[in-house]
């Protein structure tokens, strides 16, 4: 059997599902859900330590950085300066180069500011980072990012946290067809079948946070996503049947009574 890996930069992963660690009720719930998802990569944010409460538990007490690859993200950054500062601190802290860049352009839609995103990507690549980049579902912008040296292209399915699913399958397909680096749908996935659709289109992976964390039962939803991503991948690899406008019977006419 040929092993089917997700390869980002020079790293290989068995799971094509990347999960976020935000929005959970508590660290126990985060840990249970993520463990059920089978994900190997988890996104994390960089924030100030609460110096007033020395005993406050930390994410790393529940999700071991030895077990999961922490993917630092720049969520909440609205310009290149903030994003670069965040990722440089993240690299100092974690000691690895693989990061997720996300430069937002608007507080209401959380759509990316592509000019700031592209400029940040160029600088980070020069500094030796391996950058996975959140971007609009525009094939031209995605290609520009790849040409700038992005390690993965992460187009949105729909606005972050909206749960609206893939709104433009054509654009996602165009991005996949034109990219040589992995394409990972990020943002907007609402339920497991959305992830399957993304994988069937040929995406290399999906990133899910809200759809798991905001489910009534996050652990069960995490399991559902684990299977949905695998199903979508297998379906893509198997090659779907041709679409026909009219009905074509499955049973032979010969021998009809």
């Amino acid at each position: 059997m040929i092993k089917d890996y997700l390869k980002i930069s020079n790293k290989k992963f068995k799971s094509r599902l990347i999960v976020g660690t935000g929005k959970y009720k508590n660290f126990k719930q985060t840990c249970d859900a993520i463990s059920s998802s089978g994900a190997e990569i988890v996104t994390v944010a960089v924030r100030r330590v609460n110096i007033l409460d020395k005993k406050k538990p930390m994410l790393s007490d529940y999700l071991s950085p030895k077990k999961y690859l922490y993917l630092p993200n720049t969520a909440g950054c609205y310009n290149s300066k903030e994003a670069l500062r965040t990722l440089r601190l993240a690299r100092e802290m974690g000691g690895w180069n693989l990061v997720k860049l996300e430069v937002l352009g608007d507080k209401r839609t959380l759509y990316p500011n592509m000019i700031e995103t592209i400029n940040s990507t160029k600088i980070l690549v020069k500094e030796g980072f391996k950058v996975m980049v959140y971007c609009s579902d525009d094939p031209i912008q995605a290609k520009i990012l790849e040409d700038c040296g992005a390690s993965a292209i992460m187009p949105l399915a729909s606005p972050i946290g909206s749960g609206l699913g893939i709104q433009n399958k054509i654009n996602i397909s165009l991005i996949i067809k034109k990219s040589k680096v992995p394409v990972i749908v990020d943002a907007g996935i609402g339920t497991a079948s959305d992830a399957t659709v993304a994988m069937e289109l040929g995406c290399d992976g999906v990133l899910i946070n809200s759809a798991i964390a905001m489910a009534r039962d996050p652990t069960m939803m995490a399991k559902s996503f684990k299977h949905a991503v695998k199903a979508g991948r297998k379906s893509f690899l198997a090659g779907r049947m041709k679409k026909n406008f009219f009905g074509i019977a499955s049973s032979p006419k010969k021998g009809l009574i």
Partner: peptide
Amino acid sequence: IEIVHFIGGG
């Protein structure tokens, strides 16, 4: 001084 760490995020 700024002291930062990793927290839960998307």
